[in-house]
Amino acid sequence: MTFHAIGLMSGTSLDGLDICLARFEKQQAWHFEILKAETLPYSEEWENKLRNSICLSAEELLELHSEYGFYLGKSVKRFIEKHQLQNIDLIASHGHTVFHQPQKKFTLQIGDGRAIKLEIDIPVVYDFRSQDVLMGGNGAPLVPIGDALLFPQYDACLNLGGFSNISLKINNRRIAFDIAPVNIILNAFAQQLNKTFDENGDLARTGKINEVLLSQLNSLPFYQQSHPKSLGIEWCNESIFPLCKEIGVLDLLATFTEHASVQISKVLNENQLKKVLFTGGGTYNSFLTEKIRSKTDAEIIIPQKDIIDYKEALIFAFMGVLRINNEINVLASATGSSKDHCSGIIA
């Protein structure tokens, strides 16, 4: 059983649209190969549209939902033509998260899958999160199914993206949860210095840790909650940014990098993890990864570049394959929903 699928991922840090074509093959177990992948940086116009989408009226948001769907469709079409691809079985699109409030039973990822389908006429699977939220789950994290079936050789998989999240196996159950914000905060501070992000953590290296702020951050109630749990931009706006006033930007970067490393290493140590796969854009922040390594005995594995950059898009492609085959693609043990289920709307 072999499938060729394209996964689309737009992260909260807004660095662009990840497009990943992979081949998935099932013998006794699933195997994968990334065939082509690239990130299309957003134009300033699109970055602003997506960044400000949380402020739109209902009418404007519905308009953007359609417009962004056609944008995704056109982007995939160009990707297919550029690489002269054929025989693609499906497209799986995560969409771009605007709202995520599972406690109120809603989450919204814009980018209408039907618009994508109209552009390329290949089956599209989209809206992976809503069903889980309606079933009492967090709607996140979803990648643990891919971690379990595509990366079984690691004790845990940790993603350093807009937020850091981890999936691991405890007593034969795959659990997963968000640990702490990472790039969504660090990028916001770096942008105050006219940088898109803090490359290698070089800016943070020059700052000083503000011990008062560090203590306040580490004391936030979210870190004491048990899993499953997830974070959104709303939480950052309420809980993080108000604490960060009247402190220099370099010191904020240094302090927040330290904070992220404290929270991440704490999770690795509490769960006595030996071999952990690190992926996501934050993996390139060598200052952050050095700080995490200094606080844990876990072996941190940083894989080849295409896995670092495209693991999430890869797994959404895989989730689309599972959805088309009516197989479970969301784990209740990870999201907290009432049961494992097969999620995603097919266009």
Rank of each mutant, 00 (worst) to 15 (best):
L217T: 04
S164R: 02
R205C: 13
I233Q: 12
N172L: 04
L214I: 10
I209L: 10
D198H: 11
V182G: 01
N183P: 03
N183A: 12
F177H: 13
G207D: 10
K229T: 08
D178I: 07
D202G: 04
L217H: 07
T206C: 11
G161S: 06
L217E: 10
A156N: 05
L213D: 08
S230D: 04
Q225H: 11
L149R: 04
A180K: 00
Q191Y: 09
I240V: 15
E199G: 02
L193W: 06
E246C: 01
S226M: 09
N187H: 10
L158Q: 05
R174C: 01
S230R: 05
P181D: 08
Q153G: 00
I170D: 05
D178W: 13
I166M: 10
E234Q: 14
G201V: 13
N171G: 06
L150G: 03
T206S: 15
P242G: 11
L150M: 01
F222W: 10
A188Y: 10
R174L: 11
A204L: 12
D198C: 10
P144Q: 06
G161P: 01
G162C: 06
G207I: 08
A190K: 09
A190E: 05
F189A: 08
W235Q: 08
C244R: 09
S164D: 03
N159L: 07
N183R: 08
L220K: 12
P221Q: 12
A148E: 14
T206L: 14
A180D: 03
N187I: 04
I233E: 11
C236E: 11
S230Q: 07
G248A: 15
A140I: 06
T206K: 15
F177P: 01
V249K: 10
P242E: 13
D198Y: 07
A176P: 02
G232M: 02
L213F: 12
L217W: 08
F151W: 06
L231S: 09
K169Q: 14
F177T: 00
V212N: 10
Q225C: 13
R205D: 07
A176I: 02
F197N: 13
F151I: 04
I233Y: 12
L186M: 15
N172W: 03
K245P: 00
P221H: 14
A156T: 04
H227L: 12
L160C: 04
F189T: 07
E199F: 14
A180W: 01
G201L: 09
F189P: 03
L217S: 04
N172P: 00
W235R: 07
Y223R: 09
A156Q: 01
F177E: 02
F151T: 00
Q192T: 12
Q153K: 13
N237W: 03
V249M: 09
Y154H: 05
A140F: 02
N218I: 11
N237V: 11
K245E: 14
N172D: 15
Q224F: 12
A140T: 03
P152C: 09
S219I: 08
A140W: 02
L149V: 01
S230A: 15
I175G: 00
Q224P: 00
C236L: 15
Q153E: 15
A148H: 05
I170K: 15
K208W: 02
K195T: 00
R174G: 00
Q216I: 01
V249N: 13
L217P: 03
R174M: 13
D147C: 01
F189V: 09
H227D: 00
V182N: 11
